[in-house]
Design a protein around this nucleic acid. Structure first.
Length: 263
DNA sequence: AACGATACCAACCGCGTGCAA
DNA sequence: ATTGCACGCGGTTGGTATCGT
């Protein structure tokens, strides 16, 4: 049997060892440059040696974090869009604080970013989210010009081409989907971004349901069972497309998160 | 203008897990 | 089977910017 006390002491000492003599605090542009150059040419992984080999007086942890959250190519900067917010809200309602899992559905966003966003905007308001707050934030963040809710051509194509799934082996028949395939199966985005026809739609749903250890047929914790259909319908109802086909659709009409009730 | 409150975000910390030796 | 190590995740902290009075 494991001696947990000893094990924890080991881990703590190891971390202390890793951090001894290492620089902490904000990264300088020079450090960023060193790290980015090294990782770009040598690849990710073996972070402790990355720190050493790149000539950085940082812990491996710190290097990894800096790369993942800031330097990694493809990261989006800037405000969370209403579409992204809708996705965050819905996925958080499903999975709770599984930030890394949620982040997989928001390409270019990091778990840290999503976590910060959630804590800033919703943690305190989980039980009392006022409409006033919504309006205030939406104006501030979006400088909105009211637009009719509509789908872009590309997202309409996604809607039509995907999710007309009538899988007799499963219990749902999905007709109103608005998700792109990448939304449902983020791990294949990179591999298939140029060829959606390669996707096996059944696998998409299988993939969605197999995320972590969530039971697709019983999410528990509430009277409403989460099913593929009602999740999708919620997204559809709030006009959220999952525009993960390489560009975002900014023609969303503001801060509507689908009529969710935060009261 | 000054000051406190709040929002935002980068970074750190502790811990769990996976894997190779 | 055990141990040591590396990595990744979620929680937390602290600095800075912005807002409100």
């Amino acid at each position: 049997m494991l001696d947990w006390g000893v094990d924890q002491v080991h881990h703590q000492n190891h971390d202390l060892y890793q951090q001894q003599g290492c620089r902490k605090g904000p990264w300088t542009p020079e450090e960023d440059k060193l790290l980015a150059e090294y990782v770009t040419s040598n690849g990710e992984g073996r972070w402790s040696s990355v720190a050493k080999c790149a000539g950085l007086n940082r812990s491996g942890k710190s290097c990894r974090l800096r790369w993942v959250n800031y330097l990694r190519p493809g990261l989006k900067r800037g405000q969370i869009t209403p579409q992204e917010e809708g996705i965050i809200l819905e996925l958080h309602s499903l999975w709770g604080n599984k930030w890394s899992t949620i982040a997989r559905y928001l390409p270019g966003r990091t778990d840290n970013e999503i976590k910060n966003y959630w804590r800033t905007h919703y943690k305190k308001k989980e039980k009392s989210f006022s409409k006033q707050e919504k309006v205030k934030r939406s104006r501030k963040q979006l400088d909105l010009k009211p637009q009719p809710q509509q789908q872009t051509q590309s997202s309409q194509l996604v809607s039509k081409d995907h999710m007309n799934l009538d899988n007799e082996q499963n219990t749902f028949s999905y007709q109103t989907g608005v998700f792109s395939d990448q939304f449902l199966m983020p791990q294949v985005v990179a591999a298939t971004s140029s060829d959606h026809s390669m996707m096996d739609e059944r696998n998409l749903w299988d993939s969605l349901w197999s995320l972590d250890d969530h039971d697709p047929h019983h999410f528990g914790g509430g009277s409403e069972q989460r099913t593929a259909t009602n999740i999708a319908e919620k997204f559809n109802g709030c006009g959220i497309n999952a525009p993960f086909c390489g560009s975002w659709d900014y023609s969303y009409d503001g801060f509507n998160t689908g009529g969710y009730n935060y009261n």
